[in-house]
């Protein structure tokens, strides 16, 4: 049993952001060297047929996918799962190019992406694997505790430029956003800035800071009382303050949580997806079935996401 779990070691490349990529460029050869230094494992590994699942995409999902890969690995030591981040667009592009088995996405595939996939002979199949609330965060020293969706939209589109206008101190507002390749960015644009209206062409204010990682947003919000940012609930730390959001002026202000997401009270929540090329078969099918089951969904809850079944 011990040697089983040792021989099928998961090589996980966590690429949440560029610094991580560089760190892992150094780490991966180290892992490989470590693997080579255990010749006793080599003979045993060739006896058991081992298969790999390549899983890539959304940075929002990467921690969840890693936790799943580790847990699944214990149950099925013969299956190797490699998990990589890079953004929803990156994962979907990789699925279309046929380089991954599963693409993680924090948004549904766009019509043109589906067309592109079909033209490559790939018929993407969608699985909703979890739900996520997007928390709007500010510095703990900022007295503002709650905002309406309209106010958040006006802040990010540049109509509101001082915290005083939403009941705070006389301070300029510094807007923080993820980069445009992030599914969270696109979701926020469509459902918060444009309030879900198809005809609405509102854009982020030009001076919105586009940060390459969730950590970048957290570290700026943590130290800057002028800043406002947004991030998946799973990434929110104790050092920042979460804002209660109301869908409309005069509505109830709701904090993001598993309960308020499942009851559909919290307005900025979305489904998280995994896509496969065609109906999944073999190991991928078994893995996805497990992902949608109780044990995997408990992990969803542990990591601060919202399970698909309450």
């Amino acid at each position: 049993m011990l040697s089983d779990s040792r021989q099928a070691r998961i090589i996980i490349a966590m690429q949440r952001s560029l610094p991580w990529k560089l760190a892992f460029l150094i780490l991966i050869p180290t892992l490989i060297l470590y693997g080579c230094s255990n010749p006793s494992d080599g003979g045993a590994a060739s006896d058991v047929p081992s298969t790999g699942i390549v899983n890539k995409g959304s940075d929002t999902i990467v921690n969840l996918a890693l936790a799943w890969a580790e847990a699944y690995q214990v149950l099925h030591p013969d299956v190797r799962i490699s998990v990589t981040g890079g953004g929803s667009g990156t994962g979907i592009a990789a699925l279309v190019n046929g380089t991954v088995d599963i693409a993680n996405a924090s948004r549904a595939m766009k019509a043109e992406e589906i067309d592109q996939a079909l033209s490559q002979g790939i018929d993407p199949v969608e699985f909703v694997i979890a739900r996520d609330a997007i928390a709007v965060i500010v510095n703990p020293n900022n007295p503002v505790r709650r905002l309406t969706l309209q106010q958040i939209s006006d802040i990010y589109s540049g109509k509101i430029n001082n915290w005083q206008e939403v009941g705070g101190e006389d301070r300029p507002i510094v807007r923080l956003s993820r980069e445009t390749n992030s599914g969270t960015h696109v979701y926020f644009l469509e459902n918060v800035l444009r309030m879900g209206e198809k005809e609405n062409r509102t854009l982020f204010s030009r001076d919105t800071l586009l940060l390459p990682s969730s950590e970048g947003i957290t570290s700026e919000v943590r130290q800057n009382p002028n800043a406002i940012g947004y991030d998946g609930l799973g990434y929110v730390t104790e050092e920042v303050k979460v804002i209660a959001v109301a869908s409309f002026s005069g509505g109830d202000y709701i904090f993001p949580s598993a309960e308020s997401v499942n009851s559909k009270e919290y307005p900025i929540a979305r489904d998280l997806y995994m896509y496969t090329a065609g109906e999944p078969e073999g190991d991928v099918a078994v893995f996805l079935e497990w992902v949608l089951g109780g044990e995997a969904q408990d992990i969803v809850k542990e990591l601060g996401f919202v399970p698909i079944r309450p």
């Binding site: 560029l18 610094p19 030009r206 001076d207 586009l210 970048g216």
Partner: peptide
């Protein structure tokens, strides 16, 4: 590239 991406805020103004 790396340093400027991390510290300049990346707002296309």
């Amino acid at each position: 590239t790396m340093t400027v991406m991390m510290v300049t805020g990346n707002a296309p103004v």
